[in-house]
Write a protein that binds this DNA or RNA. Structure first.
Length: 718
RNA sequence: GCGAAAGUGGCGGAAUGGUAGACGCGCCAGACUUAGGAUCUGGUGGCCAAAAGCCGUGGGGGUUCGAGUCCCCCCUUUCGCACCA
């Protein structure tokens, strides 16, 4: 709360226009009560489920992390290498929405970089799921056994984007964690397999996912049947196959996949060519994997067929035998929301011996976070709340018996995934968001944020919004109609960070230069969407500008405006208006500086009518100075309350006289003032009359004339 | 490897295919001054003593009357994703 107060003080000192009555704090029960309510809506609609799964574990933060919170194998918060653990966690089924999250990206007005980042993250691949029956060792296949004891079908399912190359699948690889490994490993291979699996599980994700290391793996002794060729092929395990993508198993086609080629070469596994590129035939040897276009070879009935065409054909052929299915696979994973930490909304779920998993009834929310002294997490994988029986033992709302509370809390990103719905309704304590208010204010029509949230907050917020729409709770499915990523301000050549000591503390700059200078400088230092370099030296520009503005406005006189100034005023209003709409704040400020210079030119006291609109234009950038000047100009009410944004007259934005450019063969040879609207003929005559221009025409014939009205004439000679 | 963005003076950066370098910082000169890290005025891409002129937007080609801008190839930087089958 002390930090929140400090930030609010800073935002206020900067003069940002927030409504303090509508603030929300996600840590406050009056807010997280509704975060828990959101969880329950997802639970009721089958989008929240608890399951055992490999999850990312940060040994330093001592909690589980969502995939989106692991950056390059490191914890997003503390940069510790993340480990894989098998834990029972609550997941939100964001993957159900993968297709829609991807599809909608085409229609929303978002920064391209952000859109692309989400597109890549969702990672759609089209291909097929194929079945490779296990030939050896024999694994029980009793389809009539009760479901709970029926063993998995004795097949290995793989996902591939290249079903066309199935004839070249000479071996298979399972992820070391694949559940089938236990059952298919032969006795003589068990020791080696177990050793490899132990080694793989001990490895952190950074070293595990290094792509430059040499491939490792071991044979399980099992043999599967290639559904296309009918041949028996060996089944290996190797850590280059990841459990979390596809089915955790691959058919290896060393002839046409670089990784498989490397692996096969290393372990002496057979390599078969099944695609022939330009100039190759079925027997052309492969010195590396061939991944280009071509025709199928060594592929039975499909020989000679084009690669692209055969993807569908081979899938269809195998599908007829019940061994394949066309499939779209996404890289996106379900969102792990369980966190083994103290701070966070307790997940509103109870476990009852009689009734099983029971959601906390909505009228019993919030499930309050208890005050405890030992709130720090530990390596156990269990939340600090799990140490407090007095808190987690409770009564089942269904049967009245004894029940345990879920002791994990939810991810902070869930808090922020719906806050925009809460803002306008913040004063309502009986509903999470009022339908009428929501209809009036949402969706957010302009959202500006950091690109670092592209696959975190921005993705989660879209998912939650889509889900709430499907539950009939809101009537839109995209939360932010327009999104623009602001750039990053770097200082001393690097991103600001506390450890580097290059953090910009607004308080220091506000006390030294004033909030208006600080704000104006931040908007002026570079294109808003690209960020820029924060340089101490650059601040004096906006500082001088605001000082000059002050002096100029206060020295203004009541008299008729000079025609040239008036034209410049209208042009400036137009430019500032348009630039602000396009978030081109740096050029908007430059235009105002230019205008101020024009107003001051000649050393005469400026016209009041020339400076009053400028005060209004600068107000979004320098609100304090603008407000004060507005009052000193004799206006009784706040500039932000009653003063309208200045309007311009398009006809007055242009000058009567234009500086006309004369080119000869595309090179500028003269500049001459001409009246606006001059005809091509008149311009041509004036240009030809110019002595300097004549020198370059040099007696040659003018073959062609290019005329751009009010700008330029180009005489082509030769 | 895939995807995206970007390469322009000493610096930050401007330029609907039509005057490259707006605006600002810095620098130079001058004015006012006891003083100047204040303020004001003027200048400031390179070559050239200067004018005229020529050159100039990462490199190389191309399209065009005309290219920083469009097309092709290449180089560099930054960011995101990455053994994704």
């Amino acid at each position: 709360e002390a930090n929140i107060d400090n930030m609010r003080r800073q935002l206020r000192a900067l003069g940002l226009g927030h409504d303090p009555r509508r603030g929300v704090a996600t840590t406050d029960p009056s807010y997280y009560r509704w975060t828990q309510w959101i969880f329950l809506q997802l639970y009721k609609n089958g989008l929240a489920e608890k399951k055992e799964a490999p999850v990312n574990w940060c040994p330093s933060c001592q909690t589980v992390l969502a995939n989106e919170q692991v950056v390059g194998g490191l914890c997003e918060r503390c940069d510790t290498p993340v480990e894989m653990r098998y834990l029972s966690q609550w997941f939100f089924k964001i993957t159900n929405y993968a297709g829609r999250l991807l599809e909608n990206l085409k229609h929303i007005d978002w920064s391209d970089t952000t859109r692309k980042a989400q597109e890549n993250w969702i990672g759609k691949s089209e291909g097929a799921e194929l079945e490779f029956p296990i030939a050896r060792p024999k694994v029980a296949d009793d389809r009539h056994a009760p479901a709970e004891i029926q063993p998995e079908k004795p097949v290995i399912r793989v996902f591939t984007t290249r079903p066309d190359t199935v004839f070249g699948a000479t071996y298979m690889v399972l992820a070391p964690e694949h559940p089938l490994v236990e059952r298919i490993t032969t006795d003589e291979r068990r020791e080696a397999v177990d050793a490899y699996r132990r080694q793989a599980s001990a490895q952190d994700l950074v070293s595990r996912k290094k792509t430059d290391k040499t491939k490792t793996g071991v044979d399980t002794g099992a043999r599967a049947v290639n559904p296309a060729t009918g041949q028996e092929i060996p089944v290996w395990i190797a850590d280059y196959v990841l459990m979390e993508y596809g089915t955790g198993a691959i058919m290896a086609v060393p002839g046409h996949d670089e990784r498989d080629f490397e692996f096969a070469t290393q372990f002496g596994l057979p390599i078969v060519r099944v695609v022939a590129g330009e100039g190759d035939d079925a027997s052309t040897p492969l010195s590396e994997a061939y991944t280009g276009p071509g025709k199928l070879v060594n592929s039975g009935p499909f020989d000679g067929m084009d690669v692209e065409e055969s993807k569908r054909a081979v899938t269809a052929w195998l599908a007829e035998k019940g061994l394949a299915e066309a499939r779209v696979n996404y890289r996106l994973h379900d969102w792990t929301i369980s966190r083994q930490r103290y701070w966070g909304p307790p997940i509103p779920i109870l476990y009852c011996d009689e009734c099983g998993t029971v959601p906390v009834p909505e009228d019993q929310l919030p499930v309050l976070l208890p005050q405890i002294a030992d709130y720090k997490p530990d390596a156990s994988g269990i939340s600090p709340l799990a140490r407090h029986e007095e808190w987690y033992i409770t009564t089942c709302p269904t049967c009245g018996g004894k029940a345990r509370r879920e002791t994990d809390v939810s991810d902070t990103f869930l808090d922020s995934a719906w806050y925009f719905l809460r803002y306008p309704s913040a004063k309502r304590d009986d509903v999470p968001f009022d339908p009428a208010i929501t209809k009036h204010w949402l969706p957010v029509n302009s959202y500006i944020g950091g690109n670092e949230h592209a696959v975190l907050h921005l993705l989660y917020a879209r998912f939650i919004t889509m889900a709430l729409k499907d539950f009939g709770l809101i009537d839109f499915e995209e939360p932010f109609t327009r999104f623009r990523a602001h750039g990053l301000i770097v200082k001393d050549g690097g991103k600001m960070s506390k450890s580097k000591g290059n953090v910009i503390v607004p308080d220091d700059y506000i006390s030294h230069w004033g909030a208006d200078t600080f704000r104006t400088y931040l908007m002026f230092l570079g294109p808003y969407q690209e960020g820029g370099d924060f340089r101490e030296a650059g601040i004096s520009g906006p500082y001088n500008f605001i000082n000059r503005l002050w002096d100029t406005v206060l020295s203004a006189e009541d008299r008729a405006m000079d025609a040239e100034v008036e034209q410049k005023l209208h042009a400036t209003i137009k430019k500032v208006t348009e630039d602000c709409e396009a978030l081109s704040f740096n050029t908007a400020i430059a235009a105002m500086m230019e205008y101020l210079n024009a107003v001051r030119a000649g050393g005469r006291a400026p016209e009041r009518a020339a400076v009053e609109p400028l005060v209004r234009l600068i107000a979004p950038f320098a609100p304090h100075v603008a407000e004060e000047l507005w009052a000193r100009l004799g206006n009784a009410d706040s500039i932000f309350r009653t003063a309208r944004w200045p309007e311009y007259d398009a006809a007055k934005t242009v000058a009567d006289t234009v500086e006309f450019v004369v080119q000869v063969n595309g090179k500028v040879r003269a500049r001459m003032p001409m009246s606006r609207g001059i005809t091509e003929e008149a311009a041509r005559d004036a240009a030809l009359a110019d002595e300097h221009v004549q020198r370059f025409i040099d007696g040659k014939q003018v073959r062609k004339t290019i005329f751009v009205p009010d700008r330029l004439i180009n005489l082509v000679v030769g």
